[in-house]
């Protein structure tokens, strides 16, 4: 018999917008920035979008922004939680680097 309350909640897949995909395919993108963005997708997945230190948009409740890199030194990532989609997922929509 399983113990559902002892199980970790399953993550939500984090997909990339075309804008973010284009940035990540940029040959001039520094490796630490690439790594920070991929790490952000893992964190978004594992926390189902509730990343510590992220902030919600007043205009779009499903949209959040999180710092990239240590103390946000690299920039900000914006993502949208499509919780009502089938299947539910999260889209990393935009990256703003310094």
């Amino acid at each position: 018999m399983t113990e559902p309350y002892d199980e970790e909640p399953e993550g939500l897949p984090c997909l990339l917008s075309e804008e973010v995909t284009e940035l990540l395919m940029d040959k001039t993108l520094p490796g630490d920035v690439f790594g920070a963005i991929v790490a952000a997708t893992v964190l978004i997945n594992e926390t189902r979008g509730q990343v510590p230190g992220s902030t919600a948009s007043a205009r779009w409740p499903q949209q959040r922004r999180m710092p990239l890199g240590a103390d946000g030194a690299l920039g900000i990532a914006e993502y949208v939680i499509a919780a009502d989609a089938d299947p539910p997922h999260i889209v990393l929509t935009r990256i703003q680097l310094y």
């Binding site: 897949p13 990339l16 917008s17 075309e18 779009w60 900000i76 889209v91 929509t93 935009r94 703003q96």
Partner: peptide, 30 residues
């Protein structure tokens, strides 16, 4: 806050968010 301001003033921002929510935004898996 410079990053926040850049995102806030990006004319494509609302379109991307709306498309992500209604399932019409093209996406790529990591």
């Amino acid at each position: 806050w410079w990053c926040e301001a850049m995102l806030d003033t990006d004319p494509a921002g609302d379109r991307l968010t709306a498309a992500a929510l209604d399932g019409t935004l093209p996406t790529t898996a990591v």
